[in-house]
């Protein structure tokens, strides 16, 4: 798997790809090498990109229709027969509509069900608040036995999909609709529970997930030009959190900023605060959606409106450090 990936990766550098597209490709690859992989969708296979797998392996693909609760239950049953189910729909419906099925069946019995949801966050864009999941990480993180992963780019997404196939237990993977730059280096190897430090800063460290990793890297560049040493950590596994890394950066810089395309309540920022307040209390400032619903607009307009831009990260950090 490694070699094939690396070759593809070369082509993708400097390219932008949506994490959902990477998922569609990875699922197809996985289907070729593992016969136990089965895929479920809820009438959104074109958007979640599970259609690629469906075309190649129609006998291992189940469209459950517009019934997300039924889809999670069916995936659970399939896992009880030794299959490896991947169940996909939009993040809002996957984690929201089917939350209790995920709690009572998937997590309570620690089933080997992979929940891979697309269209998370406000970069869903014009469809508006009803379709923009900004609380899914919180909803999944709170569940015992659940692993929560938010890849930063297409390259990492592929690795995540291969990696969770080899792990036994419930996993939630949060993917997006819009194209994002490939930011992870070609020698990067994803491991569940292990974060990646692009650089550890002495003035501030930005702990980010998903699309905010690339935005945090842009912010760090600007900060550097302004004489501020800012580190960037891709905390792609939000649960279990990489505590070692958090301890390390909290010793290197007095300020930590978290960045997530998610509510500041219950997501990455909350997780980081929970750990550091008990283990090494340093100041943590959370950048994210501030207890608000999203709205219609283009993804870039919305990122601006909700302060999820490099400029806003720079401004926030500069103000805090100048105080």
């Amino acid at each position: 798997m490694g070699e094939r990936q690396e070759k593809k990766q070369e082509k993708e550098v400097s390219q932008k790809i949506a994490t959902r597209d990477a998922y569609g490709d990875a699922l197809l690859e996985l289907g070729k090498i593992r016969e136990d992989v089965v895929v479920l969708d809820a009438d959104l296979s074109g958007s979640t990109k599970t259609k690629k797998f469906a075309k190649q392996f129609p006998e291992r693909f189940f469209n459950i229709g517009i019934s997300e609760q039924d889809m999670i239950g069916t995936a659970s049953g399939l896992s009880l027969t030794g299959k490896l189910p991947f169940a996909s729909t939009f993040a809002v419906f996957e984690t929201g509509r089917a939350w209790e099925q995920i709690r009572q069946t998937v997590c309570y019995s620690k089933l080997n069900v992979k929940l891979v949801a697309t269209h998370s966050g406000i970069t869903v864009g014009e469809d508006g608040a009803s379709h923009q999941a900004i609380e899914d990480v919180a909803l999944m993180r709170v569940l015992p036995n659940m692993t929560v992963i938010v890849p930063a780019d297409g390259y990492e997404t592929k690795q995540v999909i291969y990696s969770i196939a080899d792990y036994s237990g419930p996993v939630y993977v949060r993917l997006g609709r819009s194209k994002v730059p490939v930011v992870m280096p070609s020698n990067y190897e994803f491991q569940i529970g292990k974060s990646y430090a692009f650089h550890i800063g002495s003035d501030v460290n930005i702990v980010a997930m998903g699309i905010m990793v690339s935005i945090a890297l842009d912010a760090a560049k600007i900060l550097k030009e302004n004489g501020i040493d800012a580190g960037v950590i891709n905390m792609s596994t939000v649960k279990p959190l990489d505590n070692e890394m958090l301890l390390e950066i909290s010793k290197k810089s007095k300020l930590i900023v978290t960045a997530e395309e998610h509510s500041i309540i219950g997501g990455l920022g909350s997780a980081v605060c929970e750990f550091l307040s008990e283990n090494n209390p340093v100041r943590v400032i959370r950048i994210g959606i501030k207890d608000n619903f999203g709205c219609s607009g283009s993804p870039s307009e919305l990122l601006k409106l909700y302060g999820l831009t490099a400029d806003n990260i720079v401004k926030t950090i500069t103000e805090l450090l100048n105080k």
Partner: peptide
Amino acid sequence: LRKIGSPLQGHPC
């Protein structure tokens, strides 16, 4: 419709 700031959200609000 569907533009930023509009009361005409992508889905009715």
